[in-house]
Design a protein around this nucleic acid. Structure first.
Lengths: 126, 126
DNA sequence: TATTCATATGAACATATATTCATATTTTAA
DNA sequence: TTAAAATATGAATATATGTTCATATGAATA
């Protein structure tokens, strides 16, 4: 393993070749990391996070969400489109309304752990 | 509750006032949503996600990370700074090297659930 | 069928953000 | 104390992204 490979780094030899070997062997594949980053990116915007949290409380039509967030219907629809495409939310049509809800349990779980993390870091009343 | 308030929406009346009441009552406070979005934003970039995942396998010095990612030391340092500031990683100095590691369990948990979600959505070999 | 309501979407714009480049800081070795 | 190595950081740039505006689509009602 890495025997006699003088890998260049910082102009010199790698600091911890054994660590690198281990990590290279156990690292996620590129396309998985990329997909996962795209997935998490969706949680990284306050508007979308509000939508997701609200949907964890109840399904809502676009109209309701737009009213709740006090944002334009267009802005909301654009965000819902992204959330839909990445399977964070699902929807059903009922007459003129389209009702959105969370796609599965994972979404709430992730938000919950995030809140937990912040709780433990800062005694800030979360 | 909402008695006789003709709230305007879509040019007309709100579709589901009761739903909105419920959600408004149970919604996270603005500053929490904002902090949480900032937190999740850090998972939403492939470079940072690679760093976080690698650190879940082993602590690493900047040099190692830079070599592993095949990225400039500067780019890595900039990302580590952000991860540090938001308490996703901690670090210790050892001579000339600075070793980074995950701050706590939540980070791995979140990544794990994310992977799980993707696994269940797509039979794609994650 | 014509109109209205709810939602979706393309283009444009303004802002946010990741990386690079140059350089500063800190620690060790000479 | 000088030089070199590892890391950090400010400014600049290029790209990504969220919202707006105008408009399209699809369903219900007159």
């Amino acid at each position: 393993m890495g025997f006699d490979e003088n890998i260049e780094m910082c102009g010199e030899l790698v600091v911890h070749e054994d660590t690198l070997e281990n990590i290279r062997a156990n690292m996620l594949k590129d396309h998985i990391v990329n997909d996962l980053a795209e997935f998490f990116k969706l949680f990284g915007d306050a508007t979308r996070l509000r939508i997701l949290y609200a949907l964890s409380l109840s399904e809502m039509c676009v109209c309701d969400i737009s009213e709740f967030l006090d944002m334009s219907q267009s802005a909301v629809s654009h965000q819902l489109k992204v959330l839909r495409q990445c399977r964070l939310v699902k929807y059903r049509r009922e007459g003129r309304n389209v009702f959105y809800s969370l796609d599965d349990e994972h979404i709430q779980q992730i938000i919950h752990i995030g809140l937990e993390h912040m709780n433990e870091r800062q005694a800030d009343g979360y």
